[in-house]
Simulated scan of single mutants.
Amino acid sequence: MLKTPFIELLKHMELLLQKEEAEGKKEEIDRWLDFLTSMYSHPFTDPKERKKFMELIKPEKVTEKEIPKFETDLKLLEQLKAMQGGG
């Protein structure tokens, strides 16, 4: 006899289905990208179209503004160490 509530079993099945659908969509996107890559890498492709495609798939650059900067408060750290009894 099952000890798991029926609702939890249904939710588990739903999550498995969603996972399978997401994997299927990822495979579809990979196939499409492979097709575009092979099409635009062909030597007879228009160079302007090839350059446009390369710009589309190029990863975005991360600027310094987007990278969070963390600073360590050394005085606070020393106070915490003193409170814990370590030095």
Rank of each mutant, 00 (worst) to 15 (best):
35 F>N: 12
77 L>W: 08
57 I>N: 04
82 A>T: 13
78 E>F: 11
57 I>T: 08
27 E>Q: 14
75 K>P: 00
54 M>G: 09
67 I>K: 14
22 A>C: 02
54 M>R: 13
4 T>N: 05
45 T>K: 00
78 E>W: 07
37 T>D: 13
60 E>C: 09
57 I>K: 05
38 S>W: 07
44 F>P: 00
31 R>Y: 05
63 T>F: 06
29 I>E: 13
43 P>H: 07
72 T>W: 07
85 G>L: 02
27 E>S: 10
57 I>F: 01
35 F>A: 12
62 V>C: 00
59 P>T: 00
8 E>A: 06
27 E>K: 13
48 K>E: 14
29 I>R: 14
75 K>L: 13
83 M>K: 13
23 E>Y: 09
60 E>P: 00
81 K>R: 11
72 T>D: 04
64 E>V: 11
8 E>L: 10
9 L>Q: 07
51 K>E: 15
17 L>K: 15
7 I>M: 07
48 K>V: 14
4 T>K: 05
14 E>W: 02
51 K>F: 08
69 K>A: 12
79 Q>P: 00
40 Y>F: 15
3 K>T: 13
18 Q>W: 01
22 A>P: 00
12 H>I: 07
24 G>W: 00
16 L>I: 01
75 K>C: 01
65 K>E: 15
37 T>N: 12
80 L>S: 11
60 E>W: 01
73 D>C: 03
50 R>Q: 08
29 I>Y: 08
25 K>G: 04
39 M>V: 14
24 G>E: 09
3 K>W: 08
35 F>L: 14
67 I>W: 05
52 K>M: 11
1 M>H: 09
59 P>A: 04
61 K>Q: 12
51 K>Q: 12
86 G>W: 08
33 L>Q: 10
13 M>I: 03
79 Q>W: 05
3 K>R: 09
78 E>A: 15
22 A>L: 01
7 I>S: 08
58 K>H: 09
15 L>A: 10
68 P>D: 03
81 K>S: 07
28 E>Y: 03
4 T>L: 06
3 K>G: 06
48 K>Q: 13
18 Q>H: 02
41 S>N: 13
67 I>P: 02
19 K>F: 02
2 L>T: 07
14 E>C: 02
51 K>R: 13
43 P>Q: 05
8 E>V: 08
86 G>H: 11
53 F>C: 00
54 M>N: 13
50 R>H: 05
32 W>N: 12
25 K>Q: 12
50 R>M: 07
